[in-house]
């Protein structure tokens, strides 16, 4: 059973000369209950894929199927109850003038769901936030606590797909461990499907069985993490990405420089 099916997803930003194709015919499937990883360097379009699926961008072409149902470009309330997203920067993704309570109550009010007090208590417990933090403003919370609030906000409508856009890259390693554990626990309990974007292959390796490697708007390959870590990836780029994440190695740096010089330049704009 596929939870998310993306077929030939393309999106173009800018007009005329500045036109850039950020995604070029991206296709992949995510099984129900799976944690699927999207890796790539900056500019590879990995976050753009998430934003298209979430419904934040509306001018894409191609096909996105959620639970077998094609979704349109427009964001509908029904889609909001199926898919939610957690953003990278816990400092920018919470409204600075809303308390945790206000942030969590808003979606319930929008969707006309009663019993909000109990649901908020439950979701705070699920993400491991102490009840006394419920009436704090974001500036009174640490980075890890904020990210838990962001996860709670994504969970409160009980979606079955969670899009995670670098959910731990702004956090310290010890806090990252806590947040990743929270995400794993919730998935085990609720059977959610995760689509996880990260530049950190160790995080992807910890969470995902399968992943797609992206480069410049294209999917290089969809590969099992076991194959990638066992140097059995098909594409040289994927292997290089993995090796480069692993450790610092002088000769590897030389290889990359050589590869870059054979390929395009590193200057952009003009």
């Amino acid at each position: 059973m596929t939870a998310i099916s993306v077929k030939n997803l393309s999106i173009v930003f800018g007009e005329d000369e500045n036109e850039t194709k950020v995604l070029d015919a991206v296709s992949f499937d995510v099984e129900k209950g799976e944690v699927f990883g999207l890796v790539g360097e900056s500019g590879s379009g990995k976050s753009t894929v998430l934003r298209c699926i979430a419904g934040l961008y509306t001018h894409w072409t191609g096909e996105i199927l959620i639970d077998g149902q094609p979704v349109g470009a427009q964001l509908t309330k029904e889609r909001c109850r199926k898919i939610q997203m957690v953003f990278q920067d816990p400092y920018g993704s919470l409204h600075p003038k809303h308390t945790v309570q206000t942030t969590l109550a808003a979606p319930l009010r929008i969707h006309g769901i009663g019993d909000s007090d109990r649901r908020i208590t439950e979701v705070l417990r699920d993400v491991g936030l102490a009840p006394h933090l419920r009436f704090r403003y974001p500036h009174q919370l640490s980075g890890g606590q904020r990210q838990r609030v962001a996860i709670a906000r994504a969970l409160i409508l009980r979606p079955f797909i969670l899009l995670l856009d670098e959910p731990t890259s702004a956090l310290d390693v010890s806090v990252q461990a806590e947040v990743l554990n929270v995400l794993s626990d919730i998935r085990d309990r609720e059977g959610l499907t995760y689509l996880l974007v990260s530049h950190d292959l160790a995080v992807i390796g910890h969470m995902c069985r399968r992943l797609a490697v992206m480069q410049q708007g294209l999917i290089e390959e969809v590969v099992d993490y076991a194959d990638l870590s066992g140097s059995r990836a098909q594409k040289a780029y994927s292997r290089m990405l993995f090796d480069a994440s692993h450790h610092y190695d002088r000769s590897m740096a030389n290889d990359i420089t050589a590869a870059r010089q054979a390929g395009g330049g590193t200057v952009h704009g003009a």
């Binding site: 010890s174 990252q176 461990a177 554990n181 160790a202 390796g205 993995f242 692993h246």
Partner: peptide, 20 residues
Amino acid sequence: RGLLNSLPRLDQKRDRLPVI
């Protein structure tokens, strides 16, 4: 030790990451 342990590893899979 806690800091090192809490780091996800590329080469080994663990269900949960130890928390400091």
